[in-house]
Write a protein that binds this DNA or RNA. Structure first.
Length: 112
DNA sequence: AAGCTGACTATGG
DNA sequence: GCCATAGCCAGCT
């Protein structure tokens, strides 16, 4: 059954559901969407989020280690860090502190 | 049209 | 605990 919305749009929807002050990982989103190992596509969707007119809080999506691997895609070197710190996330050397507490798993939080 | 790339992750040595 | 390899698949050249 073909979906009416593309994989990218699904990613955007999930990313927008991330609560303020919380973060998630590419893999977690991929798993929630049922695409499993295609975590790269989630990152690619973030890259394509530039095309979206709507603001996508892509800064709340980091890799599974809580490392700000995609910070260079926000224009500035520390833009992503600034955004996260503005939401109460503590970051040292591109690493989110207390990542385990900040982590928001859609497949768990949105589980029925 | 065919091949390369990548904001990832898991696994193995 | 770090480095290499493999799976993933849509978009770009």
């Amino acid at each position: 059954m073909p979906s009416e919305i593309s994989f990218f749009e699904k990613v955007y929807l999930v990313v927008e559901l991330i609560p303020l002050g919380r973060v998630t990982s590419y893999g977690a989103i991929a798993r929630y969407l049922g695409t499993g190992g295609s975590s790269r596509m989630v990152g690619w969707a973030m890259n394509a989020s530039h095309n979206q007119l709507q603001h996508i809080p892509a800064h709340r999506v980091v890799n599974r280690n809580g490392l700000l691997t995609g910070k260079h895609h926000f224009g500035g070197e520390d833009t992503m860090k600034q955004l996260l710190e503005g939401e109460g996330i503590v970051i040292i050397e591109d690493q989110i502190i207390n990542f385990g507490e900040k982590f928001w798993d859609p497949s768990k939080e949105l589980a029925l």
